[in-house]
Design a protein around this nucleic acid. Structure first.
Length: 757
DNA sequence: ACAAGCGAA
């Protein structure tokens, strides 16, 4: 019932929104769409265009006119100079071919290599044929990353000579830059998925373009499955799947043999070199290769792929040292080395775009820039001027083990597709070279073709909840491009059932429906929704926000001791969740807010993380208020202030609990899975806690649990009685500890009832 | 005694 009501409300809201749309009839340039052509329409730039019958020549005429058909304003001179460049893009040569296929079929697979212009041009080709404003609909183009959605929208707005946010806009988390005039919207794939939850038919769109589909993000994969169903319900909806070449046929097959159009890219030749023998130590080999390139190869910058922050910082130091020595002893050109990884602050990331250093003196050997990067440079960031790529063939990849319900990062060999993508980075401005630090034999026989899509490597609890919210009840028969293992699906269903988000028949419960409203993992959402019952929703909201952003504690290698001292200022003896809350409260205090940047710097905290936690908090707060969940606190001087918070943590994370193996020992054992784990060295937990709740399981050289807080087994019995049904535990230490806790509870209860008498 | 690939809502 509740569901239907909220859906119809959303429908009404959508309708209201559409009422705001400027009536196309008021736009003289669109008038022909509503009435037969009259004399005055002959001057309209779109007058000759009939929906789904446009040819390249007709579209060009409209583009070459004096008046912008989408805004009704005269074209600027800048527009025409950009237009000239656009016509040189490879996609432009096949505009007619594209239009024909687009018009003929409901789904189209479009393959465009880098430099083809697909992301900017195809949506515009669609606009001039689909004329979405005539249907009071929009064209949307999805991107896997927020920055891409923003920057492409900005570029296309300039190309179309309109103001960003008007006819062309973008929509990402925290920012909706669209208006009632918008007919082309760039957005993240995750955002479109969110919209689909409230509008199962995606009714506001006439054409949906999924870009970078080859990246196979979780959101893209689910959207593809969903769109397969939506196109059957909506014959008027058109779908374009855009991908890099590699697995185009797989997309075609998946979409019932949809037609395919391939457009070549514009890149330069890259020569590939392999090592004759396998390398023992890829980091050492990478360093050696960089120095060799610097000594023997022509001018041109170098890009090296390594796997993580520590490895990269280490390699940077070594290369810089050796490079300086080469300059002194062999008169080599100057060498500048830059690290690049996601957690690097933006101004440090920007430095990779600095030009290579100049020669030491006129006519001396040219300088060279070396960038040592994670696979962030494989897809998210492109750097022009790279001529040499060093590819050791590894990256950190997420893997999921459903048996112990643990996601972890593992250094693994990359795929052939990844290797190709990396090599391509050398040929963006001129012919380049790629040095693969593995044998040709290994490339051919040992590397898999494609990296496994994320959906096969993840815990699916939040995905299953999303699918249920999307109205997909039969998960087993939902047509995904790569269906996950049944065990992974079972684990997710089980987890959601324990969280009371799904009932025993697998149907969404009231709690589950509420949880799906939050952009959070189910355990976090359940914890947040339950927090008013523990009189601490304000505090749990802060903790949830902090858990949703990168680590707030900064620990530079050179000042570890000082950073740890600062962290101890915020430490709470009962654990990390409470310490994070202390940090947040301190950050929001007037003293800190006077100069947040300085304050964070002084306290070894990440301003960026704290600000984004604040942002997330505001977004979540709005949802709490919308769903009428109370924002309450226990008074700070009440002795239950922290206990209430720790109890609320149990409401979401009762499945992530570990018990100490033996008094005085540091080894813990997880409940039910009986994994031996250690407290992560970063914890501030001060005392010898017998029971701890943890946020993350980290698998590195050892098994660690990170972000831990001390709890009591009595709370678990009270808060999650089904999961902690003592009869379901095998005989042993955990069972007897739980039985003792149950005894304590009943004694307490007895005392309490006697007191009442 | 030792610690974070990327991304999204």
């Amino acid at each position: 019932m509740a569901d239907r009501r909220s859906d119809s409300e959303d429908g009404a809201r959508a309708k209201r929104q559409k009422m705001d749309v400027v009536d196309p009839k008021d736009n003289p340039y669109l008038a022909h769409m509503y009435e037969g052509p009259t004399d005055s329409d002959k001057s309209s730039p779109l007058a000759k265009l009939k929906r789904h019958q446009t040819t390249a020549a007709l579209a060009k005429q409209a583009e070459d006119g004096d008046i912008n058909p989408f805004s009704g304003k005269p074209f600027s001179s800048k527009y025409f100079s950009i237009l000239k460049g656009r016509r040189d893009l490879p996609v432009h040569a096949q505009r007619d071919e594209f239009l024909k296929l687009y018009q003929q079929s409901q789904i189209l697979v479009f393959v465009g290599e880098t430099g083809s212009g697909k992301t900017t041009q195809i949506p515009q080709f669609v606009l001039y044929d689909d004329l979405p404003q005539s249907q009071r609909k929009m064209v949307a183009c999805t991107q896997p990353r927020r920055v891409a959605a923003m920057s492409v929208a900005e570029r296309v707005a300039a190309e179309m000579d309109v103001k960003l946010g008007e006819e062309v806009g973008y929509s990402i988390r925290f920012e909706d830059k669209t208006s009632s005039k918008t007919c082309l919207k760039y957005m993240t794939d995750g955002m479109l998925l969110r919209e689909a939850m409230n509008d199962h038919n995606l009714a506001r769109y006439s054409t949906l373009i999924l870009d970078e589909a080859h990246e196979r993000t979780m959101a893209t994969d689910i959207l593809m499955g969903l769109l397969k169903e939506v196109v059957a319900r909506r014959p008027d909806l058109k779908v374009i799947i855009m991908s890099a070449t590699l697995d185009a046929e797989k997309f075609q097959r998946y979409f019932n043999d949809a037609p395919l159009l391939a457009v070549p890219g514009r890149t330069h030749r890259v020569d590939i070199f392999y090592t004759p023998e396998p390398e023992q130590d890829y980091v050492e080999a990478a360093i050696r290769t960089v120095l060799q390139i610097h000594a023997t190869e022509d001018e041109g910058d170098i890009l090296v792929f390594l796997t993580g922050e520590e490895e990269i910082e280490d390699a940077c130091r070594k290369i810089q040292m050796e490079g300086d020595e080469m300059i002194r002893e062999a008169d080599a050109g100057p060498l500048k080395v830059y690290p690049l990884y996601g957690s690097l602050p933006p101004h440090m990331q920007q430095r990779i775009f600095e030009p290579a250093p100049p020669p030491a003196r006129p006519n001396a050997r040219p300088g060279r820039k070396v960038i040592i990067s994670t696979n962030i440079a494989e897809t998210s960031l492109t750097i022009d001027g790279i001529v040499y790529v060093v590819d050791p063939g590894f990256s950190k990849q997420k893997i999921y083990n459903p048996r112990i319900r643990v996601e972890s990062l593992l250094v693994s060999p990359i795929s052939k597709a990844s290797a190709q993508q990396r090599a391509g980075r050398a040929g963006r401005t001129r012919p380049g070279k790629c040095f693969r630090l593995y044998t040709e034999e290994a490339f051919k026989k040992e590397l898999i073709e494609q990296t496994y899509p994320e959906i096969l490597r993840s815990n699916l609890a939040s995905t299953v909840l999303e699918l249920k919210k999307l109205g997909i009840d039969d998960l087993v028969h939902f047509d995904l491009m790569d269906p996950p293992a049944p065990e992974t699906l079972m684990r997710a269903l089980e987890e959601l059932n324990y969280l009371s988000c799904l009932d025993d028949d697998g149907n969404l419960t009231h709690l589950g429906r509420l949880a799906s409203e939050f952009p959070l993992d189910p355990a976090l959402a359940v914890m947040l929704i339950s927090s008013p019952e523990f009189y601490c929703s304000n505090e749990i909201l802060s903790i949830v926000s902090l858990l949703s952003v990168p680590n707030v504690f900064v620990r530079p290698a050179s000042q570890r001791k000082r950073a740890d001292e600062m962290k101890n200022l915020f430490a709470h003896p009962d654990g990390d969740h409470l310490s994070m809350l202390n940090v947040y409260h301190a950050f929001k205090s007037p003293v800190a807010q006077e100069n947040p940047r300085q304050w964070c710097h002084d306290h070894f905290l990440s301003l960026r993380s704290l600000q984004s936690a604040d942002n997330v908090r505001m977004q979540l707060l709005r949802i709490m208020e919308r769903e009428e969940l109370d924002m309450v606190s226990t008074p700070f001087d009440d002795k239950k202030y922290y206990e209430n918070i720790r109890r609320a943590l149990c409401a979401g994370f009762f499945m992530q609990v570990a018990k100490k193996e033996a008094q005085g020992k540091s080894v813990y054992s997880t409940i039910k899975d009986n994994q031996n784990v250690l407290l992560h060295p970063s914890t501030v937990l001060a005392h010898d806690a017998e029971w701890v709740l943890y946020h993350e399981f980290v698998l590195t050289t050892k098994n660690y649990i990170r972000t831990v807080t001390a709890i009591k087994p009595e709370w678990l019995l009270e808060i999650a009685p089904t999961y902690y049904d003592i009869n379901s535990f095998p005989k042993g230490d955990i069972k007897s500890a739980l039985m003792r806790a149950a005894d304590r509870l009943s004694r307490k209860e007895k005392l309490r009832s006697e007191k009442r008498k």
